[in-house]
Design a protein around this nucleic acid. Structure first.
Lengths: 217, 217, 217, 217
DNA sequence: TCATAACCGAGACGGTACGTCTCGTCTTGGG
DNA sequence: CCCAAGACGAGACGTACCGTCTCGGTTATGA
């Protein structure tokens, strides 16, 4: 049973490790991995070229050299398929190092994130967020497989900073995380112009400044 | 981010008063305002009942008692129509008072905004933002007619606070505005749970605290 | 009142002399002859270029520089307009001379008719006949204004031939006329190839031979 | 006029067995014969009830319980569909017997044809001929599947008459055929009144008389 | 000499149908 | 049991015209 067509009672593990190749133990022929990959690749390519709303499963099937029924067998609808294809293309986590300075680690991480969103990945992420507004399944998948891993990584660094006394005690790491992420996303979604480096710096300075531990001096 | 991104040579006036109504009034039958309203109302009703992706212009035309061509005459596509219908339902600007305290004014305003988004309007705004990702026209309309007026109002208050010495000199009002708005929007779009009052308070305290003028004491 | 919109109680005279300009004696602006001509001309041109079924009154109005209502004021439907336009283009009667030999006159006349149908007029006539199958008004108009005048002229010659003793006594001129006309028309409508001169000659020889008075010798 | 106008390199077989059914039988779901028949039946019924120009493929699809695409898959346009539906309703060939007298056989055949055209079939044939004027495909279909078989049968009888010495040697059977058919068709299409029996007799007498072998007496 | 009435262009309107596209399902024959 | 191919019923798409209806403006009497 594929990941996306099950609406509940699936373990977190299964939600994070794609269930794609966990085959039905019953009799019969197993799922064809070649077709599966061709479908995702075709979907991703067409999203890139013509966008989500012009995407058709008919077109995907033709481009992937696959029967339409094969797609419907494994994905419940266009959104689910698109979301999975987009995740595939985006999934590599930019790691957060531990240089000793939480502030420095965050600055590097946010700057890298900004650079990624400025490029082609920004469009993919925008589309995923839009999909998530219309389809509860997609929303959950995006939250679990894209957003959460990145948040958790960032929250860990904030916690480290608090423990080391770099940041003020009593901080809510969730809130800090929100203040670091949200303006980037907001501009990605609604900014009429791009985001320039100077703005990112100012943003980081203000937020990181406001959570820094009081200078003992 | 510039407040007014003049991406083309279209005057501001033309962007706010839809060019639709600026045709040569000299000749031909005049546009029927009743149909216009019926279309927007039907669209809004159907968005509410069946959502954007099940919305069809065919259905809107039938419900509004209008020919399809009349819709296509005045709106370029489904997104543009939906965007305008949603704007109609949302357009009343929550005013920002001037109580003497910029901080107080902002707290009241953001709290009210949060309350509005928690209610039915939140869904509308989410849908508008999603639409804006797929269609450049819709994006521009949302930016000009929803986002900008609200930003301008908030920016004015921030400026007032700086002038009065409540907030630190040298602040970038755009950035502050982003820090106040974006987390709300981000949670609206992607938060798995709702936003509770405690989170809003903590958010306001952190941001407003960080821009307050240094205590002279 | 124009000719084509009245379905009955119109004198034959009015059917043959277009009533177009017999205006209502009441006050008010009179019909615009320029528009009238422009409409017929545009119709004829478009019939020639795109054929009857692709013809649209919308297109005629645009090409004639005329409001659609002006067309509807004077013609009841597309068929009626097309029929009148075609008649205008075809109306000149090829006269039948009186050389002294009825046989010779008929040979010349039928040959000329054949030549005319071979050219562009053939297509017009074909279209008129087709229209006549779908619309009773058009059928009557075609019969009265195209067919009958030509039949009457031919019948007169046949009568002359009988009176002079060239043709057998007791002939039914209607039947002879039919035998002369019908094969031409039939081939015009349904012949896969054109009609060649040799066929016309053979046709004339057979029919005229069969009605010739018995040789006294 | 050639009996078989080979205007293209399409084989006779392909013209008589619609190419529609000559697709690669190896792959994909097969054409649904039930739908095919339902479409033709619905078309025929609606032609009878509302006539050709009010016929809509939309209506045919609804009445046949069939998707519009299924009609467009198999017929190129309204004319082609109507033509095929009419042919279905008309297709039974009235046979020509061989009584020993070619003249008698022809008299019986033409009289029967006249009777058929006087009835409901006349309207169908008129409509088919009209369609043939607007659409080359329809024209070819009508020629091949309606006209030709009937012509060939009649021509065979004429030939038989010539061989037996009933008719004059050197006759052009095509021409005779035309003289027998065309007046009937012409009156069907354009006669203001019906065709009465007396006219048919006179017509037959004149034509058959003119081709009879000279009396040896 | 004007008021009246009908005409005219333009073009928006409620509709119908077009021919195309995609959806999600179904039938084939072949692996 | 899976798969490609592709026909199928359904129905929305965006376009083209239909025939009707305002509009503002233009003629041409006839009071």
């Amino acid at each position: 049973m594929p990941l996306l067509s099950s609406t509940s009672s699936i373990s977190l593990l299964e939600r994070i490790i794609p269930a794609t190749f966990i085959s039905d133990p019953a009799t019969g022929r197993r799922r064809n991995a070649v077709s599966h990959d061709a479908i995702l690749e075709a979907t991703h390519g067409m999203l890139d070229e013509i966008g989500f709303d012009k995407l058709s499963l008919e077109g995907v099937a033709a481009r992937a050299g696959v029967g339409k029924a094969t797609i419907y067998r494994w994905w419940s609808n266009k959104s689910a398929l698109a979301m999975e294809a987009l995740l595939h293309a985006v999934e590599a986590l930019p790691g957060i190092g531990d240089s000793g300075s939480a502030r420095g680690d965050i600055e590097v991480y946010v700057t890298r994130l900004w650079q990624a969103l400025r490029g082609g990945k920004g469009r993919l992420v925008r589309q995923m967020i839009a999909l998530a507004q219309f389809d509860a399944d997609s929303r959950r998948i995006f939250h679990d497989r894209y957003l959460m891993p990145r948040r958790l990584a960032l929250i860990a660094v904030v916690r480290r900073g608090v423990e080391r006394g770099e940041f003020r005690a009593g901080l809510d790491p969730d809130l800090v995380c929100e203040l670091l992420y949200a303006p980037l996303m907001h501009r990605l979604l609604l900014g009429s112009a791009g985001i320039d480096e100077h703005q990112v710096r100012a943003h980081l300075d203000l937020v990181l400044g406001s959570i820094a531990a009081a200078d003992p001096a």
